[in-house]
Nucleic acid binder design. Sequence first.
DNA 1: GCCAGAAACGAACGATCGTGCTAGAAAGGT
DNA 2: ACCTTTCTAGCACGATCGTTCGTTTCTGGC
Lengths: 193, 193
Amino acid sequence: MSKGEATRQAVLGRAAATASRIGLAGLTIGSLAADTGLSKSGLFAHFQSKESLQAQVLAYARELFTDQVVRPALAAPRGEARVRALFEHWVAAGREGGPSCLFVSASAEYDDQPGPIRDQLVRDHLDFTDSVAQMFRTGISEGRFRSDADPDQFAHDLHGVMLGFFHAHRLLAEPAAEARTRRAFENLLAAAK
Amino acid sequence: MSKGEATRQAVLGRAAATASRIGLAGLTIGSLAADTGLSKSGLFAHFQSKESLQAQVLAYARELFTDQVVRPALAAPRGEARVRALFEHWVAAGREGGPSCLFVSASAEYDDQPGPIRDQLVRDHLDFTDSVAQMFRTGISEGRFRSDADPDQFAHDLHGVMLGFFHAHRLLAEPAAEARTRRAFENLLAAAK
DNA sequence: GCCAGAAACGAACGATCGTGCTAGAAAGGT
DNA sequence: ACCTTTCTAGCACGATCGTTCGTTTCTGGC
């Protein structure tokens, strides 16, 4: 990896961490430069615009999320076990606020602002949601879930459960957040059996 | 109502509408002044600081939400019917993006930024969630829900369902969002019976 | 119709925003 | 060790940020 690429990655790492706290739109070239010890223009040279920076932060977060949540789940046995693994890793990743939070807040920030960032968010979500639905579908064909259960509905519902978790855990700092989320998840699975 | 109070209300209305699109933190004195036809300083004089403006926008949105969702629900018969009415009005209010969206995006924006805004968000959510739990509790004592059902868990789960709705409806512009949300809600009620 | 007080304006402030341009420092292949 | 490419700093720009202040315009009770 070249020097430039190394600092670019370092900047993206910092940016992703900051953005998961104050939001993607709240990112600032100046403060990000101060954080990384670069000059404003030196940092800016790596990205062609602020919007491009945001897009790259999003892509970076997506990779992080895949590493922390999706890939570990794919390592689990197919079917119900994989769905459960996905859930567990998702919760674990969201517990200390990583890329999952970034996606939650970015989705809320850009849900009404058309443009490439929003498009990217939509694409990422559809990709992920398809993966979830596929995992569930395998569970159906393995006989672990009712054959008339709707995989897309399950993916939608699971996402809602996770949004509820992030809200309770991060905004409310609710100690019972995880327990409630786990119960909601079990309820979701139970309804599909 | 005095002249000053009238313009204050008008500004808050505009601000709430804008904030539900671009977020509470995205509000700007300048653009808000341009929107309302006031000068920057003329507008600023009504609020002592930007943070105070944001706090007042939040309070304004809370009243709007109460009017659109909570009060109509309270007009329905107690118990399950009231819970259902609450849900229906909540969905209807969120369909075309009013104060509900503001709370969703503001919660995501401030979930990691301590301060009065966040405190206010937490307080409002706890108040509302208590109301929901209370409605559900009445449903229990009327025998419509299982006696061992957990009202707080129900309120938490319902909130997750609604967050999923806003996400699917506003970010994804998913046509099936409302149908999915309705099914998720029915599933929630069914599990409580 | 006058006059006190409320309400709005215009100009300016220091700071910071995103973005260019140019020169020099560092890196790395040969 | 040289030379080319890559990277970074410095400086400056116009715009906009939140905020202050002094002045002007409007309102409403008498």
